[in-house]
Amino acid sequence: MTRFIIIRLLQAVVAIIGIAVMVFFLVRAAGDPLELLKNPNMTEGQYEAMKVRLGLDKSYGEQFIVYMGDLAQGDLGTSLLKQRPVIDMIKESLPNTLKLTLPAFAIGMTLALALGVLAATRRDTFWDQGVKFMAILGQALPGFWVAIMAVLVFAVYWQILPVAGMATPAHYVLPVGTMVFFTLPGMMRLVRSSMLDVLESEYVKLARIKGLPEKTVIWKHALRNALITPLTTLGLIIPGLVLGAVITETIFNWPGMGRMIVEATFARDFTVVQAITILTAVMVLGINLLVDISYAYVDPQIRYEKS
């Protein structure tokens, strides 16, 4: 297991270096930030001074060396636009993003599990049809559209929920709901189909032959096996959650990292875009590693192969 974790960590470092290199060149392909920062009242001398101060007077090659060097020391640089260390800006916005994504993830996964099991154990009944209908609807409708419609209905027509911001618990309802919408349907369908497969298995039959009550058969014998497939795709859901955060924070004017990267991209604020991209990559890779470890926990066969 330790060996497995070390290998995965090394792989992650290589992946992060690759992402850092790619994002460096991609942001520069978006255009020159100086065009946006240039003030018509600036003198030629002031403009040149600004260029030097931002480090944009150097060639791409030189900029790249400085960037990678700083990165190696954990320095994410200074925002071109706001003139503040990027790390400080992230310290403000990351907790806001987590306040949105963590409850959404917890609610989404709990509901996916409960509804998936409900549908599978009551196959072809009203409950199952309901879950299937919800899942198809959830996967067919674009999340951003549903969010805007929800704002229209709950905040504009009925005025029972606030439109945007994050002041009170009521402010969390719509954005968290939107994020749940991004993760729930796919996971729910997966739990259902995986559970259906397992319920047909011989060991579930044997568990019933032993005389075990149905709740032990389902929650002990079936569920743990049924979780293996959804767990592998959990790693794929995390990037979806990041994307969901970008869209949700933009719609609800939520001061998190998602909105920050959108604003920074429009402003061609290279350092901010680079920093958030790299940080997101680190988080996604870290969660994937955790998923792999939990996978080994659920399935003993994997635990034994890897040790």
Binding site: Y203, K205, R208, L212, D299, P300
Partner: peptide, 23 residues
């Protein structure tokens, strides 16, 4: 249910699939 496993038991055909792999 109280009869199953206690009074009457059953052995299934395929030993490769009739045991739960995770316990």
């Amino acid at each position: 249910r109280a009869y199953r496993g206690k009074m009457i038991s059953m052995i299934l055909q395929d030993p490769m699939t009739s045991l739960n792999p995770v316990y």
